[in-house]
Structures are given as C-alpha cells and as structure tokens.
Nucleic acid binder design. Structure first.
Lengths: 334, 334
DNA sequence: CTGAAAGCGCTAACAT
DNA sequence: ATGTTAGCGCTTTCAG
C-alpha cells in the first residue's frame, strides 16, 4: 500500500499536522524535527496525495486545455507555450483533443469541471456561443476565436482574422492577380473560418472585383482535405487564368500544394498559393509558403498567463479580450 | 459555490447514499426517485466531484502520458492513438512534455504518482534504467525503448530498432553505395538512438566495409539539429563520393534535406538520405523520404490497451514486452 | 429499497 | 512549536 501522512507521522513520532507543515512550509517546524520527518518520508517512499490535498483546499493546480486537433502543428505549438508558462507557475496541464467535434467539446468541459480543474483553456472551440456561455465557476480562456459579449467568467485571446485575411486579398491584387480562389474552412462551426472567408471576399470586392472573380471551396483544416479539394479543382483548371488561391490554413495549403505538384503545375506561375497560420514548417515548403502569422507563442503564453493570474488572484473575467497582432509573411508561393 | 451531493439529496428529499446510487448505478433505485434526483441535479447544475470520488475509491481513471517532445509528429501520432483507446475505455489522459530532459521525466513520475494516476505511459524516456526501476505501485508501460530485466510493475512496447537500422545498411549496400554517413541521436541518453547507430554500423561491417567508410555525426532528434549538422558536414563534402546518409529520425532527416537543398545538391544523386520513423509527412517531402516505419498506431494503441487491461484486472506486469514489427519504406531519396 | 455514518488523506483552525 | 480534530465530497458497509 501507498504510505500516507499518518504513517510518516507515526514513524517520526509527531502529529500529522507537523508533517503537513513541513510539506506545505506554511508554518515553522524546528530543523531537527523537520529532518527527522523528511527521513521518515524517504524511508516510506512517501508521495503526498494531491487528490486528498485538492479535496481539502478546493484547488487542484490543474488546468484543462482542449484543442480541436493535436496533430495540427498550429495547435501543437500553442500547447507547447501554454505548458511552458503553466510549468513555471507550478500548474499541471491536462491536454485533451476534441477531434473537431463540438459534442466532445461539451463533454470535455464537464469532465474538466468534474475533475476540479482550476481553469480552462479552450482553443478554437466549435461550440455554439450559447453553450460556451453556460455558468462556469472557474475561469475559462477562449483562444483563437473572436470575442462575444458575455457576463460569464470568460476572457478571449485571439488575432483579428478578418483584417489579416483582407490583407491577403489586398496583397493578391497588388501583385496583379485578377482571378481568385478561396479554400474556406468549416465556416458554420468555426467563427474564424468565417472571418477569413469574409475578410478576403470583402476586400476583393472593395478592390472592384465581383463575386464571380472568386471561386469558393469548402474544406477542413487538414492536410488531406486540402489535397483532395485541390485535386478536384484542378480537374478543369485553366492555367492561363493565373489564379491566386487563399487556402485558409497552412496545413491545408500544404495539402493543396502537393496536389498542384502531383498535377505538374508550377507555383506561383500557374497558380499562386497563400496560407494562414505560419506554422513552423511553412518556411520549408517548396516554394516557401506565403501566409499570415497567427502567433502561437503569444496566443499560448498570454492565454495561460492570463488564466493563472485570474486563478491566483480570484478575479473574475467578464468578457475581456486581448487581440494579438499578426502580419503577412511573404514567401515564394505567390 | 459548486453544489454537492448533499445539496442534491436535500432538494430531492433523499439521502446522499441514494443520490450516489443513481450516479454509480451500482444499486437499484426506483425509477420515480431516480427521476426526481436527476431533476434536482439539473436544477442545481450539479457535477460530480471526481476528486472526492477518487479519494474514496482510490482510483482516478486517469493515465499519465509523458513524451520527450510533443512538437515531433512521431510522438504526436502516438498520443493521438493512445487518447483514442483511453477515451473508449473511459479513461482520461494527462499529457506531459519532458522536453528531452531526464530530470523533468523523474519529476513527472513523482507528479503522476502524487496525482493518483492509475497508470503511466512513458514514451521514449531518457531516464536511467535504475531510475525507471524504482518501486511503483501502479503499472507503467515504457514505449519505444528496448526492454530490460525487471521485477517491477513494468511492461514494454517497442519495435526492434537494431534490426531495422541494419536493414537500412543492407539496403544502402544493395543499391551500390560504398561510402556512408550516419547521423546518430543522443546515444548516451536514448537507448534506441544507440540501437540505430549500432545496427547500422554492425551491418555495414558485416558487409565487408570498415569503420572508415562511415562518418558518424551526433545530433538531436529535431529539425534544427539535422539542418545544422548537415550544413556543417557539407562545408567540405566531395560530391563524387556519392554517399548514403542514414539520419536516424525523420524530423532530423527533413532538416538535413533542407540543408542539402540550400547547398544546391541533388538527392539522391549527390547524397542519398534515409530517415527513421515514417512520420506522416515524410511521403510528401521532395524527394519522398526513404525511411523505416516506426508504427505509431500499434505503439500507441497497444501500450494503452495493455495498460488499461492491467489496471482493470489488477494484474501486475513483470517486465513483459511486446515487439511490434516495422519495415523499410523505399521512396525517392535513396 | 433507502438511510445513517464511517472514513479515504490531507489541511487548517484551534488548543496546548 | 507542536498536537488534536473537524471536515472537504464522495462511496460503501451496515441497519432498518
């Protein structure tokens, strides 16, 4: 059996309170006693039971982190930075994958609540706003999704996807492209997918083009989806039109690029391609992928820091939001 | 305040025991009472406190999973499959990154133990065998590392890296290469890094070549490390020698490939490259990367299933091991 | 079929 | 400075 604080107390001939005191360091314990107790701990191979501790103090020092797809490097990077600050602040992160499924997201929130998480980081959720707005007695940060009005214990950290996508359109036009393609994400479920589409489209029109100048395709934010969608598109593609495609996530853009290569077309000569996210590997694609920086470091770091500060200070959020900045990264694919 | 089982009991006019019974479904509760109780739960927005439950039943339904580097897709894939089976079996996974640091690994084990994990999945640990062999009162699976003799509650799931690496050497020789390069990983810390090096080297010699025919470089299993190491190597590289390089992880091989391209050399004409792991993206590199399949699906699935079976059945491991098979994947880089 | 009550391991107020 | 003890929320005998 696992040894408890009682066993340690007995072996060291002290009370459990004293043992607890050397553990928590909240009260003075004479050095010799402390030493004796530490020896007893060693001898018994004692590990404090954080479950019991959590129950008592009503704090778990755990943060629930959910992402839609852990195999997408964009989310992987966010996780990495979130973990870094959590670790520094002595919090543990429980990472869960929702698999792009809003049902699963809902369930995860319940799991996190039941598990006594001190806070939640919810990255790019697909849940409906109404669901997100349920009463939570712990703070939650929503990352990479536009903010909305709320009175619940929620804060937002994101970049303005509408503006950035508009800047892609602007850039296309300035480079002389006259025909456009947009691979939109799941705009019904992912608000930022919608922002990216509308930001791009609005700017195209603002520049004097019409709806007909831009074909829109819908796909998922996965490599395979980008590959398949592009493959289909190329079946009857007219090279001479020189189109510029805005593929609204890098991992999808990569898939699309591979499809273009499989068709033996040249990028950007036959078709130009821009992505969104600027994942680490985008600079190493051939040609290098023009894209929008979606700053994972700022997103992950800021979200986690904000959350932990709220937990530690017991301050409630009320819909506050921080918008991190992002910019266009020009490479050779356009 | 969060509502408890007591609040529910009071509102429904029953005892806490009855509420607990509808929660756990271990005892019959009359349908009308059960319904009344469920209504009370809803009204109070009650979520069971798994921390209290865990304390009582001495089970957390949590599995601690640690990987050296979550941004390496090889580990990401393992995580994905592990999560899939855990979820199916109603276990939660707590994922932690050790950052390739054996100190952190040790600490994580303590954290997992303290956190009342029901079991541990330890992927490619760098810890010394002696440390791994500490007394654990919960089962642990060590993944992607060769087994060793142990009497502790440990099992192993891995592929035979020595044999696979030897097959790369054999393949190089059969293809007519006569000069070789090996990028070894951190062989002091990662047993499989050593296996890969020695498997490759031994076979080279077995084929009648000498130590001088193979230059060995040491690097980390990261993209950047592969890039830098290759860049250095190419400073005085003689194209005419037609060497074949075994870069012992795909992500590192990718980095190396980029360095080769930056030098405007051709793969495989000027230098052939093979990797190890067969991460998803390796087929999409240009040229496609010849590599060894390190089957993440089998590794992740089997490890998790084995662990959960052990937890549920209360059976102890005693050093049992399962070796999954792997094979050479030939593409255009060699 | 339902209720009363003990106790999981720990912390913190209170007592000494 | 150290000890005693109640109680966190839950499950589980044991009674009724």
């Amino acid at each position: 059996m696992r040894s408890t604080i009682k066993d340690v107390a007995k072996l060291a001939n002290v009370s459990t309170a004293t043992v607890s005191n050397v553990l928590t360091k909240k009260k003075y314990v004479s050095p010799d006693l402390a030493e004796k107790i530490r020896q007893a701990m060693n001898e018994l191979n004692y590990k404090p039971n954080t479950i019991a501790r959590s129950l008592k103090v009503n704090r778990s020092f755990n943060i629930g982190l959910m992402v839609p797809d852990i195999t997408n490097p964009f989310f992987g990077e966010i996780v990495k930075y979130a973990e870094k600050v959590a670790h520094k602040e002595n919090y543990q992160i429980t990472l869960c994958n929702s698999d792009n499924d809003s049902k699963r997201e809902n369930k995860l929130i319940d799991i996190f609540l039941s598990a006594g998480m001190d806070g939640i980081i919810n990255v790019a959720p697909r849940m409906k706003q109404r669901q997100l707005n349920q009463k939570l007695n712990i703070p939650m940060i929503i990352v990479d999704r536009p903010h909305f009005q709320t009175s619940e214990n929620i804060a937002f950290v994101y970049a303005d996807n509408y503006i950035s996508s508009a800047s892609v359109a602007q850039y296309f036009v300035e480079r002389g492209y006259r025909k456009f393609i947009c691979f939109a994400g799941p705009i019904e479920d992912v608000p930022n997918a919608y922002k990216r589409l509308s930001g791009f489209l609005d700017k195209i029109k603002e520049c004097g083009f019409s709806e007909e100048d831009c074909e829109v395709y819908y796909c998922d934010f996965t490599f395979d989806s980008g590959f398949e969608t592009m493959k289909k598109l190329l079946k009857n593609y007219d090279i001479s039109e020189h189109k510029a495609a805005f593929i609204s996530s890098d991992i999808t853009a990569w898939g699309a690029i591979e499809a273009v290569k499989a068709h033996h077309l040249r990028i950007p000569e036959d078709i130009a391609i821009a992505g969104y996210d600027n994942i680490y590997f985008s600079r190493f694609l051939h040609p290098g992928l023009t894209t929008v920086e979606n700053p994972t470091k700022e997103l992950g770091t800021m979200a986690t820091q904000l959350l932990i500060d709220a937990i530690n200070s017991q301050k409630r959020f009320n819909g506050n939001y921080v918008v991190v900045s992002s910019s266009l990264i020009e490479r050779q694919s356009t």
